[in-house]
Design a protein around this nucleic acid. Structure first.
Length: 258
DNA sequence: ATTCCGGCAGAGC
DNA sequence: TGCTCTGCCGGAA
C-alpha cells in the first residue's frame, strides 16, 4: 500500500467518529462496477461515501485494467469488484438524470466541489456557459478556473459537466473529447445546430415579446417561445434596454450580482 | 473566423 | 511565503 493510501485511510478512519466497527469495511473499501449507459458501457467506483469515479469504456479503450489503473493513479489505492451497484445508479445511467445520487467529492477543493454542486442544477437537455457557473458559485471572472475544475470532475456524465458550454456557442472541451460532449448533448435533445446558427447571427439569448423575459436558448422556457414572438439578443444588457428581464429559471447574467 | 491577452484557481517548486 | 505555469474560458481586436 502506498503512503498516500495510508494517509487517506487514516483520514477516513478519523472521520468515522462513533460508527460501529462492523461498518468500517463498507465505508473504507471502494468498489467498482461496469454498467451500460447512454454513452455505452461505463465503469464506476463507489463506497459508503458515495460515487467517486466514472470512466467510459471508450475513454479507457475498453480495458477494465486501464480503468483500475487510472483510479489507482488518482486515488492511490486499489478497487475491488462489487456484487451489485449502488441504488439508483443503473437507472441514472440509462436516463441521464442523476440528481438523486450521492457523490464522494472529498478529494476536491472547496471551489471544485462548489462548481460540481452548482452544475448539478442544470436541467437535463439544457446548457449554461462556463461564465454562468463562475457567477453561480460567487467567483465571477473565474470562468477559466471553472473549466479547470470541470476538467477534474471525477464523475463525468453523472455530474453533468457536458452541459457547460462556451459563451460563443461552441460546445467547448471535455474530458472524453468534444465529440463525446456533443453526443451526450444530442442524446438529451439539445439542438446544437440551432445554437450554432443563432451564434453565427450573434444571438446568444432568446426572449419572448409577450412575456418580455429573456433566456438562454436551451432553457425550457425559451423552447416554448413561438417563432412569431421570438426575439434574439446579443447580450443581456441589450435585452434589458429593450425592456426584457432575465428568466428566473435559467438566470442569464443580470447586472445585479447581489 | 482567428488570434491574443487578461483573469483565476490549483499545483509544483 | 511567493513565483511560475497550466488549463473543458471570454471578449476584444
Amino acid at each position: 500500500m502506498t503512503k498516500s493510501a495510508e494517509d487517506a485511510l487514516v483520514e477516513q478512519l478519523s472521520q468515522l467518529g462513533a460508527l460501529p466497527p462492523n461498518d468500517l469495511l463498507g465505508r473504507v473499501a471502494v468498489d467498482w462496477v461496469s454498467l451500460p449507459a447512454t454513452v455505452g458501457r461505463v465503469y464506476v467506483a463507489f463506497s459508503g461515501h458515495g460515487i467517486s469515479y466514472l470512466r467510459t469504456a471508450d475513454s479507457v479503450h475498453g480495458e477494465e485494467t486501464e480503468f483500475l489503473e487510472s483510479y489507482r493513479r488518482r486515488f492511490g489505492r486499489p478497487l475491488r469488484p462489487a456484487s451489485r451497484p449502488p441504488a439508483g445508479l443503473a437507472p441514472a445511467l440509462r436516463t441521464g438524470r442523476a440528481k438523486a445520487l450521492t457523490y464522494d467529492l472529498r478529494e476536491l477543493s472547496s471551489f471544485e466541489r462548489a462548481v460540481l454542486t452548482a452544475i448539478q442544477e442544470i436541467p437535463h437537455g439544457q446548457t449554461r456557459p462556463y461564465s454562468w457557473v463562475a457567477r453561480e458559485v460567487g467567483h465571477p471572472g473565474a470562468a477559466r478556473a471553472v473549466g479547470s475544475a470541470l476538467g477534474r470532475n471525477p464523475v463525468p456524465v453523472l455530474i453533468p459537466c457536458h452541459r457547460v458550454t462556451r459563451a460563443d456557442g461552441q460546445p467547448g472541451d471535455y474530458v472524453f473529447g468534444q465529440e463525446a460532449k456533443e453526443s451526450l448533448l444530442r442524446a438529451e435533445d439539445v439542438d446544437l445546430d440551432e445554437v450554432r446558427e443563432l451564434a453565427a447571427e450573434q444571438v446568444f439569448y432568446l426572449g419572448s415579446d409577450t412575456t418580455n423575459i429573456v433566456c438562454f436558448p436551451t432553457c425550457h422556457n425559451a423552447r416554448r417561445i413561438s417563432a412569431a414572438h421570438r426575439r434574439g439578443f446579443r447580450d443581456v444588457v441589450e435585452a434589458e434596454e429593450a425592456g426584457y428581464r432575465p428568466c428566473q429559471h435559467c438566470r442569464p447574467e443580470s447586472m445585479a450580482t447581489a
